[in-house]
Design a protein around this nucleic acid. Structure first.
Lengths: 203, 203, 203, 203
DNA sequence: CATGAATGAGATTTCATTCAT
DNA sequence: CATGAATGAAATCTCATTCAT
């Protein structure tokens, strides 16, 4: 097959892997099962990826790259967006994240293993925070207000980013468990998020 | 050895398993490695536990039981506690959770697998919410205000319980990554938590 | 099975491995084939040996230990033996080596890989030389005649030990290729060996 | 590229293969690794060689051809050489062999596998013996002195050719293990060789 | 002559689990 | 309660080889 064939195949492998990892976790997902679902020979996976870890690393690299890009372009929309009601802005962000909930789940699972050297969860947080709070950050940095900076990071990460990611990661399970409608669940979450994290900004 | 020996052994196995699961995840932890670290014969693990899943189930059962008990007794302390400043109350809760951060991490990892039938994360949330909000819940239930109930659950779970659990689960990694002092990190988190989740209660 | 069962099994595995390694070489021998011939489960091999290399290391350790022991006891027979005609002494040595020709072949093959860190071939030579030449060695060492020592080692190794080992390793193939009788081949070799290496001693 | 490019490539593949085979053995050397080191596409190797065995066969064929040629031409130098002191003659032979030590190591390793149908080691011996001993051989053959012929072959092979080949194959490892200078080692070997094998000729 | 992509078979190693004692 | 030995299934990874271009 042509070069395009190879690239497409590689992408297909990554897509399947992403789904399976999010379904059963990285360790419980066999390379065999990826190969079967991606309809390729197992050896081909090892042609494209050094080892199983290389698959997940690729996924992590991609998601971080993509989110960076998205955030960059969203800044261009700044003026447009800033006119939107806050609720709509958050809804849009969640919709974007929802698209990536599978790999985000994997990121969370792997990030929770205390022995792992994976810090992509924090790297991702860095990107989000640094882009969203550009103005604030610069002010703080120039004043060398290191303490406030740390506080900001913790605040954004644990009460802002994490709840959002956890929400997209768990929404379906939540809806299944509590037998609620996913859309309604989303509305409720947005309400809560505004009432806690967002309000703390305004204050 | 006497039954006491057996019980101690069983406890040791559980403790080691808990630690290893939190370090590398459930699937990446072999029964072999548990046996080795617990200094028991592998077959003995199968004497005490039906299979590998039985180990993690035991751990989950225990943590839910224990948290229930703790919450119960904390309600007895209600009057004492209520006089404490909110910051101290939260600090105490976090200290309690910190003791259980390993198994909580495991709970989170397993809860994030979308194909898993494990809903212990939500069950645990139920217990916490239902105990903490007893008065509110009864009012709402009697008024059949189902919508508000749902909202309450989502609010408590995603902006209250989850950030707290995630914090104890990730604190050490966070401190290592950002090269900060874990105690300072805790103080910062408490500040943020009060400013977002707790304030939303008062409002 | 009892402890004896385990030990016997381990020995059986080693014996089979030795034979297969000498037939096809270490790398071309699969653990699977060892398991099949030894009539054990493949996993049992990994219960007894850390990995495939551990099998060959065990064999090497054993052969060196055994040859040491044999040489030791042959020194006790010194007086008996010394009365034997030189031809008989050599024949006896070859018979002893012939018993170990399989593992000696493996030792040679592995020793010839230039990237290997295996020096067991030389270690074995050390033992043989140091035991056989005790008196000579002590004299040389005390005189600090390092040069003569080096010469002695090279002489014993390349014109004494190696030809003997190579002979037992290749005798069967030689006989098959030249269509000669193995016993006659042995006699011829002994003649040659006496006429070259042994004569150089006497001189 | 032109045919010349192809020929050069083929030669490069052979050279790399020779080196890798001698480093790790034939079976432990993957076609992949040859391709990588030779900086060619793996499929190109299969354009030039029918299969992996074809590579080693080519190498064996080449070395036998080359040694034949060299021996032939050395006979032309007979008169010149015969005037040289025996030590110099042997040194020259070893220098020639040293150039081919890699493939000779491979020849030895493969020859030692008892199940192998490779007898190139003996074929090579044939050539050497038959060329070196022309006069003697003819006499013996005409007298139908088969026994003496066999003896001669064994003598030349096990106390003459093999020690020499083994020496060039192992010299570097020997020097590394005994921490000696390779040149000194060579001198010592020549001494020993003269004192054993060569003296047996003269006698 | 040369390449990237693909494959089927098989190698090494690991795992959860069980048996016999 | 406790152990050493054993097993079947499966996981990760590698290999020689081929195909399409």
């Amino acid at each position: 097959m042509s070069r395009t064939g190879g690239d497409l195949t590689k992408k297909r492998i990554l897509m399947i892997a992403e789904r399976l990892f999010s379904e059963k976790g990285f360790d419980a997902t066999s390379v065999d099962s990826i190969a079967k679902k991606a309809k390729v020979n197992k050896a081909l996976i090892y042609y494209h990826f050094k080892d199983k870890n290389d698959i997940i690393s690729s996924l992590f690299k991609n998601i971080i790259k993509e989110l960076s890009r998205q955030i960059g372009s969203s800044i261009e929309d700044f003026h447009k967006k800033s006119k939107l009601p806050v609720e709509e802005k958050i809804r849009k962000e969640i919709v974007l994240l929802d698209d990536k909930k599978d790999i985000l789940s994997v990121l969370l699972m792997e990030g929770l293993k205390s022995k792992n050297k994976n810090f992509q969860l924090f790297e991702l947080a860095n990107i989000v925070i640094e882009n969203e709070k550009k103005s604030v950050l610069e002010k703080l940095k120039s004043q060398n207000e290191d303490d406030k900076l740390k506080q900001l990071y913790i605040h954004e990460f644990f009460t802002g980013i994490l709840p959002m990611i956890m929400f997209v990661a768990l929404r379906d399970k939540w809806s299944a468990y509590y037998k609620t409608n996913p859309d309604e669940t989303l509305n409720n979450f947005i309400d809560s998020f505004i009432n806690s994290h967002i309000k703390s900004h305004i204050a």
